[in-house]
Amino acid sequence: MTATDEHFGEAASEWDLETLYTDLASAKGKRLTPVEKLHLRGLLCGHSPAEIAEKLSKNGKGVETDLCATVYKYVKGLVDKSNGKVENWRNISEWLEEAGYKSLSSAKVQGLELLPEKSIVNITNINIEKNQIVFLINLRIPTQLSSDLPTENLGEDIFKGLQ
């Protein structure tokens, strides 16, 4: 983790940042800079450009100008809103959530707790093949077993809880 990764680190618990960085780099044509990543994480944490500037001890107008020239432009290209206007900085996180970059919230199954801050669901590709829509999904769900749960029938108990 670099020094700039320490700021707005909570974005990593709710967003698939690595995939988002990769996809935005494709939209940009080259890798995002550390400052672009930092500003993006600030937006994803729900901070306005002025709040991002304040937390980073920067000029508010400078951060807003940087966002308009970089992150806003890349996100618009990524989510196919090239003709759309970023009317509010909140549009960025809304568009990215609609595009599937936000991790899904938790669910509880009998005896098994899913950890929302670590769970990641990402649709990596959508294709139409032979009159079918095919989704490629990357699903990572860390689990923690309850200590009082017997493990010999764990699989059966989990599937009963899902029915």
Rank of each mutant, 00 (worst) to 15 (best):
N91C: 07
L56I: 07
R31C: 09
T4R: 13
I133Q: 09
T4Q: 02
K61W: 02
V121L: 15
G29V: 03
L162H: 01
V71G: 04
I120R: 15
G42K: 01
D16C: 10
Y21G: 04
I123M: 02
I52G: 01
I133M: 09
N127R: 15
E156R: 10
K130P: 04
G60R: 04
H7C: 06
W89F: 11
V134H: 07
R31V: 13
A27Y: 04
G60E: 14
E152Q: 08
C45M: 09
F159S: 11
G60Y: 03
K76I: 00
F159I: 08
K130Q: 12
S105E: 15
L44F: 12
H7S: 09
K130E: 12
V71E: 04
D80F: 09
L78E: 08
E117L: 07
K118I: 02
C45E: 15
R140H: 12
Y21M: 04
E87F: 03
Y21D: 02
T4G: 00
I123N: 09
V134F: 15
G46V: 09
K37G: 14
D157M: 06
A53D: 14
I141M: 03
S147W: 05
D148T: 04
D66T: 14
T143Q: 05
N131K: 11
S57M: 03
P116R: 09
V35L: 11
E18P: 08
N127L: 14
K76E: 00
K28V: 01
Q132E: 14
L20C: 06
E98F: 06
W89S: 03
N127A: 13
K76F: 03
K118N: 15
K73L: 12
E113V: 05
T65C: 06
L40S: 07
V134W: 10
L149Q: 12
S106T: 05
G62R: 13
V134P: 00
L154F: 12
C68G: 06
K58W: 09
T143Y: 14
D80W: 00
N138I: 01
G100V: 00
T151G: 04
G84L: 02
W89P: 05
T143L: 15
W95Q: 02
V63A: 13
A50L: 06
Y74F: 14
K58D: 12
P116K: 14
G155D: 13
L104H: 11
Y101C: 00
I137S: 14
D5G: 00
I137E: 13
N138P: 00
N153K: 07
K118A: 12
L56A: 10
L44Y: 02
A25G: 15
S119E: 11
S93E: 10
P142I: 00
E14S: 13
T33F: 13
V63S: 08
E98G: 03
S26M: 03
K37L: 06
N88V: 04
P49S: 00
G100N: 01
A53K: 07
N91G: 10
P34K: 12
G42P: 05
V121M: 13
W95N: 02
T65Q: 07
I141V: 15
D66K: 08
V75L: 01
I92Y: 11
L145C: 03
L104Q: 08
N138F: 09
L149W: 05
